[in-house]
Simulated assay, not measured.
Amino acid sequence: MEGIISFGNKRSYEDFKKQIPTQVLPLFDTIREFCFNLGENVVEDVRMHRVVFCKSMTFRWFTDVEPHKEGVIIKLQKSRKEPVEIIQIDKNQKISEFGDLIKKAYEQIH
């Protein structure tokens, strides 16, 4: 995107993947793909210890995903007025068990 100014070096997801435990990587990749499939306006922000998914360039984040040894911790934000919902996902769980929560956060965030 032209005209966007970047300060410093942004981490790529490829760099971030190196710190995700091998047994958790398939789950993390599935969550990432699910978030991108919610809409064309999903933006990924790779941070030091987690990946945040935002709705458009306004950076209204709806999902914050952090890897751990046995799974991931997901923070969901539906609005700035509601408290953040935190769920812990085991590496053996399927996206079908919690995908509706992510989708609802994406649809409700403004």
Results as ranks from 00 to 15, higher is better:
V52D: 14
Y13L: 15
I4N: 06
K18G: 05
D29V: 07
L25F: 11
G8L: 12
T30H: 02
K55S: 06
M48D: 09
V72Y: 05
I4Q: 05
E14A: 11
V24C: 12
E82H: 01
I102R: 02
K94V: 00
G99T: 00
L25R: 11
F34K: 01
C54F: 06
L76A: 13
Q88D: 07
D45S: 13
A105I: 07
G71T: 09
I31H: 04
P83F: 00
L27F: 08
Q88Y: 11
T22P: 08
F53N: 11
Y13V: 12
K103L: 05
V51F: 04
D100Q: 10
I74A: 04
F7E: 14
I4F: 05
F59E: 09
Q93C: 11
D100F: 03
E40D: 07
I89V: 15
N41H: 09
V84E: 09
Q108S: 08
G99E: 00
Q93A: 12
D15C: 06
E14W: 10
I102S: 05
T22F: 12
K91I: 01
N41F: 04
E107Q: 03
I74H: 06
G39K: 06
E70F: 03
P83G: 06
H49A: 15
E40H: 05
E82I: 00
E33D: 11
I73W: 01
I86Q: 09
P83C: 07
F28A: 09
K17S: 12
K10M: 12
G39I: 05
D45V: 08
R47W: 10
T58R: 10
E107W: 00
R32H: 13
C35G: 00
Q88K: 10
E85F: 02
E82P: 00
I20Q: 14
H49L: 15
K10N: 13
M48N: 10
G99A: 12
P21W: 08
K94E: 08
Y13I: 13
G39P: 04
K104W: 04
I95S: 01
I87C: 04
A105S: 12
K81V: 07
Q19F: 06
F16E: 10
M48S: 14
V84Y: 11
K104R: 15
W61E: 02
D90H: 07
T58N: 13
F34C: 01
R80L: 10
H49V: 12
V43A: 02
F7T: 15
V72R: 05
K78P: 01
K17V: 14
I4K: 12
E97R: 03
T30N: 07
R80P: 08
F98R: 03
K55P: 05
E85A: 11
N37C: 14
